[in-house]
Amino acid sequence: MVAPQGLGGLDRRVAGCRACPRLVAWREEVARTRRAAFADWTYWGRPVPGFGPSDARLLIVGLAPAAHGGNRTGRMFTGDRSGDVLYRALYEVGLASQPTSVSADDGLQLYGVRVTAPVHCAPPANKPTPKERDTCRSWLVQELRLLRPSLRAAVVLGAFGWQAALPAFAAAGWTVPRPRPVFGHGSHVSLAGAETDGEALELFGCFHVSQRNTFTGRLTPDMLSAVLRTAADAAGLPDR
């Protein structure tokens, strides 16, 4: 099933989801209590939909919104240090209009790229349960089906996102090899398209842009940019 009213309609439905009691309670509690540094903010406090154009050729799949990032601003990877790293890299590769992402009305535009996650609510300790991941999967499947006409490549950030995304890609019509591809930084696998359209999806793995990875040097800016450039080339995005 494809969502009515296209991607915009899907995003509105995602933002109204209350399917997971633990996540609903957590995201709303965080929005009420707030962090001292953001005491003057009115938190979004709802599921965070994907961000980017409806004809994106490249999809970036994260894990879940941060409690005081996307859960505060209402936009994926916006207002936290992980987003600072990701959007700066997208800007340097020529896929974003500016290197920062601080609020939903800051004017940021993405060029041929959409950013999403397999879990749309901020989870306690940044750890969704397997049940929460599986409950949220239908949103990602619908998003993939809507993006399918234009989508040619995807970058998945981290092992959790990789494990969550593979079944969604399969449900959306691409063929995932068996045994399932193993996650690794720089890993690459082609997912064959359905016979009806024949368009393959080039799938790339990348370490997550978490503070743990970026602060320790496990993921450097050059490593992230290299994966994004390779994926952008595979997606057929023009150089900027």
Rank of each mutant, 00 (worst) to 15 (best):
Y91M: 01
P238G: 06
P49A: 01
P179E: 03
P99E: 05
P123E: 06
G74H: 03
G161H: 00
G158T: 02
P238I: 00
R13A: 15
A19K: 04
G112L: 09
A172H: 09
V85D: 02
P124Q: 03
A125S: 14
A235F: 03
A37I: 10
H68I: 09
V115Y: 02
S103K: 11
F160E: 00
N126H: 12
G198H: 03
V182P: 06
E143M: 07
D239M: 11
G193I: 01
C136V: 04
Y111P: 05
S150G: 12
A171F: 04
G161E: 01
G186K: 10
D40C: 06
D233T: 13
P221A: 07
L201Y: 02
V227E: 01
G205I: 03
P65M: 01
R137H: 09
G6V: 03
I60D: 04
M1A: 09
L63P: 01
G107D: 07
C206Y: 00
R145Y: 05
A171C: 11
A165E: 00
Q98Y: 01
V119L: 12
E199Q: 14
V24I: 10
P4M: 04
L146V: 06
A37N: 08
A64M: 07
R180W: 12
G83A: 10
K127V: 15
G70P: 05
D80S: 08
S97N: 08
F169M: 09
A125V: 11
M1D: 00
D222M: 08
R27C: 07
P130R: 00
S225F: 04
P221L: 06
L59V: 05
V115L: 14
A117E: 11
H185Q: 13
L140S: 08
A56F: 00
A171D: 12
G9N: 12
L86D: 01
E29G: 13
F183D: 05
T214L: 11
L10H: 02
R88P: 12
A67D: 00
V102T: 15
R88K: 10
L59H: 01
A89G: 11
Q163C: 10
A172R: 06
R27A: 05
N126R: 13
D134E: 15
S103H: 10
R88F: 08
G184Q: 14
M1N: 01
Q109E: 15
S187H: 07
P65Q: 01
R32Y: 03
A159T: 08
G198I: 06
G161C: 11
R81S: 13
A232P: 09
E143I: 02
S225C: 15
Y43D: 09
G107R: 12
T116A: 12
T73Y: 03
D197L: 12
Q98K: 15
F169H: 04
S190I: 14
A194R: 13
G107M: 11
Q211N: 11
C121A: 14
P128A: 14
A154V: 12
V85P: 02
N71S: 13
A200Q: 02
N126A: 15
G205N: 03
P65W: 02
A159G: 10
Q211E: 05
W139P: 13
L219Y: 01
R133Q: 15
I60G: 03
R46S: 08
P53G: 09
P47D: 04
T42I: 14
M76T: 09
G45C: 10
A192V: 08
